Simulated assay, not measured.
Amino acid sequence: AGFHNVILVGPPGSGKTLLATCLPGIMPNMTIHESYEVTKIYSIAGQLKRESGLVEERPFRAPHHTITATALIGGGAQIPRPGECSLSHGGILFLDEMPEFSRHVLEVLRQPLESGAVTIGRSKQVFTFPARFLLIGSCNPCPCGFFGTREKQTCSCSPQQIYKYRSKLSGPLLDRIDLHIEVPRVPVQLLHNRKAEESSKDIQQRVEQARAVQCERYHYRPGCPFNSVMNGEELRQFAQLDKEGQEMLQLAFETLGLSARAYDRIVKVARTIADLDGAGRVDAAHVAEAIRYRALDRGLLF
């Protein structure tokens, strides 16, 4: 609903990849402005089918962990071409098993995650491609996958192996990911007795309602942006916290050692939670939930 980046952490087989691949089914429909931008990118990249018109479905890109930095960010010898970051514009870039990617490859994501664009310089020209994507990452808590979990299997990794595995994800990169979600293994009893849950269509309707609120809120900006791209002035105008919420966030800031970027991102997530809740103001309950996404078992979730 707010286009907030997510990392899913849990043991093997817990459903992280399934959750990520189901996400397009609940995303809001593209606006005409977004369709134009995505269509242009795919046309430049030579990936627009001849018989198709405007791209109306949000892209879902899931590159393999052997991808190079150039293929991810874009580039080329003479005339650069859009990479996976730009091909994911307006949609999802899914990195399954993030620590298996090269650290250098992951670090090139920092600029587009912050600015929503990729700039590639050549000797005579500079090319800029849009790259405002929703990053979904998944990983295990350690190489074997069972560190810190409540399973009968015990972790067989040494401290050095765990450190090397986790060090692939740098602090600055994780700081740009708003939601750190633990995905525990599903108990076998629930697999035997599966109940009908809320459908993707029903969830999408709630997402569309929150999206409509954001379009009304940022009507003066082209493209109907999401809460995740609010600037400082918009944060002060649309996401004012009450006294209790400010005190709660200050305590979390001091206790968890959050950065100024994390502070702003928590407020943006709280604004989205309030929109989904149909609330005009961001109250302490919304702030508490947003903080929780940064503080779920710090030992397991980096």
Score class of each variant (00 low, 15 high):
Ile73His: 02
Asn29Gln: 15
Glu34Ile: 03
Lys152Tyr: 08
Leu300Pro: 03
Thr154His: 01
Ala212Trp: 04
Arg206Met: 13
Phe133His: 03
Ala279Arg: 06
Met230Lys: 07
Asn193Ser: 15
Arg150Ala: 15
Leu8Thr: 14
Gln209Leu: 06
Leu134Cys: 07
Phe133Glu: 01
Glu100Ala: 07
Glu289Asp: 02
Lys40Met: 12
Ala131Asn: 01
Arg166Pro: 01
Glu254Gly: 12
His64Glu: 09
Asp283Met: 10
Glu234Val: 08
His89Thr: 14
Gln189His: 15
Cys224Asp: 08
Asp264Ile: 00
Ala262Pro: 03
Asn5Pro: 09
Pro222Met: 10
Gly76Asn: 04
Lys40Trp: 04
Pro11Gln: 08
Ala131Gln: 10
Val287Cys: 06
Gln250Val: 13
Phe147Ile: 00
Glu151Cys: 14
Asp297Asn: 15
Ala288Thr: 04
Pro141Leu: 04
Gly53Leu: 09
Leu87Tyr: 05
Glu84Arg: 06
Ala290Pro: 01
Val287Phe: 04
Gly257Ala: 12
Pro225Lys: 06
Ser156Cys: 04
Glu233Gly: 09
Ala69Lys: 07
Glu233Tyr: 05
Cys139Ser: 15
Phe147Ala: 02
Pro12Asn: 07
Glu247Ala: 14
Phe101Ser: 06
Ala69Ile: 11
Val108Ala: 01
Leu276Asn: 04
Pro159Thr: 11
Cys157Phe: 05
Phe101His: 07
Val229Met: 05
Ser88Leu: 12
Thr128Arg: 12
Gln125Cys: 12
Ala262Met: 09
Pro172Ser: 09
Pro59Tyr: 09
Tyr218Ala: 03
Ala295Arg: 01
Thr70Asn: 12
Leu296Phe: 10
Gln240Pro: 03
Asn5Met: 13
Ile92Phe: 02
Ala131Pro: 04
Gly121Leu: 11
Leu134Met: 05
Phe94Ala: 07
His65Ile: 07
Thr68Phe: 00
Gln160Asp: 15
Phe127Leu: 14
Ile162Glu: 00
Thr119Gln: 02
Phe302Ile: 15
Gly299Gln: 14
